[in-house]
Computed example of a mutant assay.
Amino acid sequence: MKKASLILLGALALGGCALSPQEVDVTPKIAVEKPVEPLQGTVSVTVYDERLSRSLGHRGGVYSDTNDITTNDRLTLAIRSAVEMSLREMGLTVTESEDVPQFQVYLDDLEYKVPEGSYITQVDLKAKVRVRIIKDGQRFEGVYATEITERVPKAPSDEKNEELINQVLSDVLSRALADPKLTGFLKQA
């Protein structure tokens, strides 16, 4: 009897697990290189979530229709905070004034996908942002995208999902702020 119970527990553990919905706490960390000549000036940062839904996708598994993975309500605030900190590291002053150059970040896409079926072998993530800077009647716009594929031996834990989602967001924002055309536009007097 004891052996049969252990076999049943093992089969349940190895089978397609039911995964709960997850709300992710977004805390991107942007990697910027401090420029040889620090940028000068003042900007105001605004972030817009242009996605149609807070859902990034489904966690997969047996009940994939009921296990959405979503971002929390502080997504735009977290992105704004990370961008502001990076711009300060680059030498700029950040304010909330509308009378200074406007640095706008638009989150167009943030996706989380797993293969169809009950067994999860990898996670595919995508992020896409647009950055628009309006300065002295001139405008800069850049589009940046990042994709990550992570091979996994089993369905990722809540912590691993959060790490992967923050990684793809951090990567796309770092790519944007490393764009020489963007920094060149900010340097113009």
Rank of each mutant, 00 (worst) to 15 (best):
P38F: 11
D65E: 14
L14C: 02
R88E: 04
L164E: 01
T149A: 11
I148K: 13
G184H: 11
D136I: 00
E159R: 10
S157G: 00
E163N: 02
C17T: 00
L12G: 08
G41N: 01
P21R: 03
H58S: 12
I120V: 02
G41V: 03
A78I: 02
A127G: 03
D136L: 03
V100M: 01
N166L: 14
N161M: 10
V168Y: 05
E147K: 11
T71R: 09
G60L: 12
D65G: 15
K187C: 00
P21Y: 01
L110V: 08
P115L: 04
P35L: 06
T95N: 03
R80W: 09
P21E: 04
A189D: 14
V47D: 01
Q138I: 00
A145E: 15
T70I: 02
M1R: 05
V152I: 08
T70S: 06
D25W: 07
E50N: 10
Y63I: 06
I7A: 12
K128Y: 14
G41P: 07
S53H: 13
I148M: 10
E162K: 10
S5T: 01
S20R: 02
P180F: 10
Y112H: 12
L169V: 06
Y144L: 13
Y106A: 07
K29C: 04
R54H: 08
D124N: 15
S86T: 01
R132N: 10
A78H: 01
V36Y: 05
I134S: 14
E141S: 10
N72S: 10
L8R: 09
V168M: 10
D136S: 08
G61D: 08
K3Q: 12
L169F: 11
V45P: 09
S53K: 10
Y144H: 15
E50D: 15
A82D: 13
P21L: 03
T183F: 13
Y144Q: 14
Y119W: 06
T66N: 13
Y119N: 12
A178S: 15
D68H: 15
V100E: 09
V105Q: 03
L75H: 07
A178F: 05
K160M: 15
E116S: 13
S81F: 07
A127E: 12
L77T: 09
E23Q: 11
L107N: 05
L75D: 04
Q22E: 09
P28T: 13
E98V: 02
L110E: 03
A178V: 05
G91T: 07
V172G: 09
A4S: 06
L39T: 00
P101E: 01
D109G: 14
I133C: 05
E147L: 05
D49Q: 12
G10H: 12
D108L: 09
L182P: 12
A155K: 01
A176E: 04
